[in-house]
Design a protein around this nucleic acid. Structure first.
Lengths: 220, 220, 220, 220
DNA sequence: GATGAATGAGTGTTCATTCAT
DNA sequence: CATGAATGAACACTCATTCAT
């Protein structure tokens, strides 16, 4: 009953987190019971408590980790960009890539906030605000630079975020649309939303100047 | 221990539904227990079962009722409109009015679908599809009529719906923005999303033709 | 699975208390598990919670009830007595009768205080202080009246109480000594403790005055 | 992860015993868990098992050790005394000194007997009987020598022991009474209990013979 | 000897549901 | 229709104990 050979605690922990995310995604945090979670990673219930001392705490740590990773990834993907439009389009790409590649994480990151205690909520919400703040800064910078005009910066930020995040409610990797196609569509919607002339479709763009802009942007 | 004077069964049922919606909104369906629900309407647990024979069934009936009402209200509010733009703007107004006036209902209508059994889900999802279909028809009609051009009808529909529904995650009746202001902002965002030139602000509208169009629209 | 015919909640509660006292007496509060307790009164575990919502609270209520009864019984048994010696001897009789008739209750009343939360402890300890206070008042009154002389009122009170309560650690109803014999012995010990000449044994009492006093007292 | 420098196995064992006694004293044996105990002595739970292979056995060894030490100390303190009164007063002093200096040990020595298995209980109870037997012998010798008269030797022994042991339930080193004062008071109570005329207070002793006796005795 | 990890048998508690009254 | 009581199936969590490293 001691420790089996060749098993490290860190590996087990990773497996538990993964299994938990999957279960929470499918049935919700309340509906996830620790016996099943233990079974997922081939542990007996009692053993799980060496890694997960508290279900409630565990949820918080999970959401915190997700948000921290999201923010860190965002920062690294935005590094070096300055032009607001480039940043906006890069943000859209990043958001969609992250939210489709890590559909489960982002879904529970949005849905399970209400299962947190107030103190835990505060901490996670703070990180969400940071993410939102990043997008708002982009929109504000573009407005200041005269690239676009917004009726209400805050509302537009929230609206754009809702629009993008909504993807995770219906996206399926094996669906009709490739991820690249999805990104292209949502970039156009985003540009429309901030009041930019939609970048022309490849075949329908008459104006050369616009085309080159579009090309530059697609590279982002 | 019979029924107290002056209380009708229908009143009790209404009170139960209301209390349930509030509890589900705040903590989720799984976290709502029937003892507390009974207490909310001054009943003992046993008595609740005269009105709510099955928790699971109850959720389904709640969601069905919400969706049915939503669809019925939508139909009545859209009656007589033909012009796609008018219909689109009316849809936005309707959606926001409903989703702010009945924030709790719409929130759980979106969140608690996963707590349904597959059969129940099917039935409620069908109604959501109808609602989504209504919007898609508007967008399709406008495109057909040459009022706007969409890259992808389905995606735009879902995107617009996400954008609008997102309001319910942050809207507060006592917030910074009046409901009318909110509607105005979201109408502009919607118009941008479908590729219409944003209707000018009151003070900034130079072209008479556009003004009259806007006026007509505001009346919707 | 509803309520069986002819079963009242009060009866069940009484049975639960009795069974709990017996179990706590035999194995201690921590060692009493609610599954076994339920079985003692022919209930399933879940049903027990209709009567005992909280193990910890239950212990407190048990100890409070025991102490309240003890105090009430004491008051009624001391009613009408004024002479300190009579009161002292009556107290001894009362204490022994109660502590032998209700050996289990008094045992846990002394032993399980440490299983209480601080707040619960406070409340029960208050009642113990009252009981102790009653004895102290008797001893003080006798001293004031010149019936006996004590080195230290407080210590003597505690010492006498320890002496009397100690009985419950070894007393057995089927033991060598009848209860009446026990009471006689402890009355003599008590009288010695406060410095009274021990009342003479029946056959060994030479002084008439003392005999009549003893007779009076035995009647107490 | 070997043993830290400067720590011997015997030291660790001593620390564990001490920590265990403290925990058992405060919350009882059942409520002491080995994880906390390990933490008290800066060990991880697994390491504790190198020293304490069995919780139940550990309790027995603890109680046995306490009783053995008690008996050994008693013997050494009573060595050379013959006069029953001197022995009785010495016993009182010894008992109080031990039970105040080692309040925790004696408390659990009395309270945790019921947590022992029957076999363990037998062994520890045997030692308690020896202690009790020691006192009984003193009382019997005094009675035989005509120093005092007892109604019932066994009951008086138990009563005196209860009276003395009771101190440990309320004694506090920082309390109102010095230990010496306590011993003086309890010696007088003891003398009264066996029917000796209470030794007079310093200022109130009229009879020289008694004074000298008292002086002799105080030296015990 | 110290440690991290695993394990099984509990342990108090919750909860939807049933039913005689 | 209201109520108190009963029930079984969970559930999160605890804990003494074991053992490879």
């Amino acid at each position: 009953m001691g420790r089996p050979a060749g098993v490290s605690g860190a590996d087990t922990m990773r497996a538990i987190r993964k299994a938990a995310i999957s279960r929470i995604y499918r049935h919700g945090f309340e509906a996830m019971n620790l016996r099943d979670l233990a079974a997922d990673v081939n542990l007996r219930l009692g053993s799980l408590y060496n890694h997960v001392p508290q279900k409630q705490e565990f949820l918080a740590s999970l959401l915190e980790a997700i948000m921290s990773e999201l923010l860190a990834d965002l920062d690294s993907r935005m590094a070096g960009l300055h032009d607001p439009l480039e940043r906006l389009l890069r943000f859209v790409r990043f958001h969609i890539e992250w939210h489709t590649a890590r559909k489960e994480e982002t879904f529970i990151g949005n849905m399970e906030l209400r299962s947190l205690t107030p103190a835990q909520y505060e901490s996670v919400a703070e990180k969400r605000k940071q993410y939102e703040g990043h997008l708002r800064a982009i929109l504000a910078d573009g407005a200041k630079a005269g690239l676009w005009r917004l009726d209400d910066l805050h509302v537009t930020t929230l609206a754009l975020l809702s629009l993008l995040t909504g993807i995770s409610t219906w996206y399926r990797a094996d669906g009709r649309l490739s991820q690249e196609r999805l990104i292209r569509i949502y970039r156009r919607l985003t540009q429309r939303l901030v009041g930019l002339p939609a970048p022309a479709r490849k075949s329908a763009t008459p104006v050369a100047r616009k085309r080159s802009a579009a090309r530059k942007v697609r590279a982002a």
